[in-house]
Design a protein around this nucleic acid. Structure first.
Lengths: 342, 342
DNA sequence: TTGAAAGCGCTAACAG
DNA sequence: CTGTTAGCGCTTTCAA
């Protein structure tokens, strides 16, 4: 065991109460005493036990964050921002990786429940019910997800979402303006709220512009998954694809390259997030930009000052680069888009 | 506050001690009683306080992990593996992002010290001294870093490293066999132990094969940094580059593409880690493969069974793909490698 | 300004 | 098998 406050108090010739006050910077202790206690504490390499302190104060000083997949590069800047913002206020982060599993996520919530002051659920795969129940035990910040309209919203629940509609609508308008009459959406995880959200918005936007709309699923929202299905989409007659995120789009780009479909000549590709470093995608990816860091900052704010009970949202906008272009061969045989070389 | 064990005990008509025993699955309680306690606990939605339990047992059930940059895609599979392995044994993970700063890392160690059973320091930027001191307070697993030979090794310290030498040597031999007579190493963070390690090994290997060796630094070990310096290297007469990691290599590839230097025609590029999904790099990247997940598994093992005090290591091997090729124009003007188009 | 004492929620002897 | 008792290390009344 390490040094306890009792030892410090003894060594400094004061009571534990006084030592406690001195260490916590209370004004109810005369300066000379404080100095002495502090010096002794330093000499003894004393670190106060958070556990004991938490037990009596009821505050732990850390917040839990649960994400579906720590391997997903969208979440790491989110976490980094959350951590640096919160860390400045000396709160620690307990990070849980739910691995896209509801059971695992629930287990993590359970496990964290007694050692955090608040919980951030990012892209949660839990049911509305489970979330409401959690929010009954401690403050919850729901990120990139909104509760159904029918459930009673608990007081201790904040929602931080991505306002995807403007960006996504701009994307559809952009494609429409380029002469595309159809759109394929390469979807994300089945349980994902934001995937459903994107589906809905795209569907509506396409309907309004009289474009046909198709949804195709992927196993996981990553490069490999995009690459797996990208080829089939490119050769199936699709002229424009919007993907769940940039990783998937990158995979589609790679697939197109593999089979010799030109982008944007043969097919236009639009990603989501703008999470890729400049120059990584070839051609440069047109995408619905949305800052993961901003999402993290907003989430942190929702914890620090739970004043604003209204739903916060980070904005999105279309960033047009080189992966989208005019729809040239509307009536041509899809196979014609495949270069002879392939 | 939530339900306490005292309330459960009262409702079940037993003492707290019995309730505690029933809940912790002790065999010293008759089955009927246990059932009753368990039922009541479930009804009251009771979750035992980890804090209180930890305070008395001295065990927290969580381990801390500190990494220099959570945004670095090498660490996320490492974390994922660590978490899933450890999580199976019901231990929680406290993750700290040191942001490449020694001060911040030390602060995290301090903060975690009273709420973890062990600490994993990955690619630590701390001084040997600080690490030894930490290991004096609780078990430490040092990952991708080794203490200097002169410091007294504490008992509670395990080292898990990457055995980079075989892979890196194979890389140099590979280039030598291809006719390259010089090698440029694009280095990682200044404080990084593994960067120094790579420098040393490459230098030695080059000397042995009578190849000239140059080291160039980057700001951060990521794509953007690689892209920034990649162009200068490609046009400066270098015929072969080994990078600190795959992200940097990817940046170099992008830079070469930008300025029109062919890979491997104009320059050969070798990465480290093999962390990129298949098909991401164009051309496919020759790399010194090393599994971050294996590193995570080994680290987890070092915590679960601290039996093996010997240094564990994950192996590396050269994976030859398409980014390395014969050194064609040994005497030609470097500028000649730049395509006319650029 | 300081100290003594109570207690946060739980576990672990020790009796019964 | 079960209850009583004593703390784990700290904060916080309440007195002095």
């Amino acid at each position: 065991m390490s040094t306890t406050m009792r030892q410090v108090a003894a060594a400094a010739g004061v009571s534990v109460a006084t030592a406690s006050r001195a260490l916590s910077g209370s004004s109810l202790v005369v300066d000379a005493t404080r100095q002495r206690v502090l010096r002794v504490a330093a000499e003894l390499d004393f670190t106060p036990s958070r556990l004991a302190r938490s037990l009596v104060t009821g505050l732990t000083g850390n917040v839990g964050v649960i994400i579906p997949d720590i391997t997903n590069p969208f979440f790491t800047p989110f976490l980094a921002e959350l951590e640096s913002t919160l860390g400045a206020g000396d709160v620690g982060l307990l990070i849980g990786n739910a691995q896209e599993s509801r059971e695992r996520e629930q287990a993590l919530v359970q496990r964290m429940s007694t050692q955090v002051d608040a919980l951030v659920l990012a892209s949660s795969r839990l049911s509305d019910d489970q979330i409401v129940r959690a929010a009954g035990r401690f403050p919850v910040v729901l990120v990139n997800r909104r509760l159904g309209a029918d459930v009673g919203r608990p007081v201790a629940l904040a929602e931080v979402v991505i306002d995807i509609e403007p960006g996504l609508r701009a994307a559809v308008r952009h494609l429409h303006g380029l002469g595309h009459t159809e759109l394929t959406y390469l979807d994300g995880p089945a349980q994902s709220w934001s995937a459903a959200q994107k589906r809905t918005v795209l569907n509506r936007a396409c309907t309004e512009l009289e474009m046909s709309f198709t949804v195709t699923g992927t196993a996981r929202p990553d490069f490999a998954a995009g690459r797996e299905v990208g080829g089939a989409i490119a050769t199936s007659g699709a002229s424009a694809v919007v993907t769940y995120n940039d990783q998937v789009a990158l995979g589609v780009l790679a697939a197109c390259y593999d089979i010799g479909v030109e982008v944007p000549g043969g097919i236009s590709v639009i990603g989501c997030d703008d999470s890729l470093p400049t120059g990584l995608a070839r051609p440069a990816l047109t995408t619905v930009a949305c800052s993961a860091r901003a999402l993290g900052a907003l989430s942190a704010a929702a914890i620090v000052e739970p004043t604003t009970r209204c739903a916060d949202a980070v904005s999105t906008r279309l960033v047009i680069r080189k992966s989208t272009g005019a729809h040239l061969s509307a009536t041509a045989n899809p196979a014609a888009r495949v270069r002879a070389a392939s």
